[in-house]
Amino acid sequence: MLRPVTDALGLAAGAGAARPASPAARPDDPDADLVRRIGKGDLLAIRALTARKLPRLTALAARVLGDAAEAEDVAQESLIRAWRQAPVWRFGEARFDTWLHRVAINLCRDRLRRRRPGDAADLDALVDPGPAPDRGLEARDIGDRVAVAMAALPPRQREAVVLCHYQDLGNIEAARVLGVSVEALESLLSRGRRALRAALSDLVP
């Protein structure tokens, strides 16, 4: 029987009451219900997780790699791994989103490692071509400048800024994704933002 989309997303008011959460499920993992249902073969849950994660993973990889086509490949591969992992996911050990970010970051690192020194990212393809109603040509130009400045950061600093600023991960989750301490993450962020401020100094008041 088809369930409403709100239910598929785990947003229905009564969803929790109708389907008690597993005692082992991590209570603060917003993806736990979807992952559990995907593990049982629920196609609506597969669609819902795709809708929730594909834009996030594509944006993450695009900003880390500086290449839109490669970012799509990374997002696709990350979700393929998610489909394989959902039925055997061990609830309570990590957030699913954190694991998914780690997979994506690892795939990005593999690709960056394989790049030859002369390979240049197509940064133009990364910027949303817009213009949206509230964005003019100037915003697009600034976006281009930011993309170039981000691409010039050392990879670990770029990853830290992407995770915390663009992916909106908290410091603990971002540190887990990068496999570093919270202190190291904060250092990467500070250095990254300082470098960005210097590179964009003509635009920062």
Binding site: T58, A71, E72, L79, L126, V127, D128, G130, G143, L196
Partner: peptide, 19 residues
């Protein structure tokens, strides 16, 4: 300033490749 860098949403073809 950082927020002005927006990336394009995934295209439908990518959704199909995933689904």
């Amino acid at each position: 300033l950082l927020g002005s860098w927006r990336t394009a949403d995934p295209v439908e073809a990518l959704r199909s490749r995933v689904l």
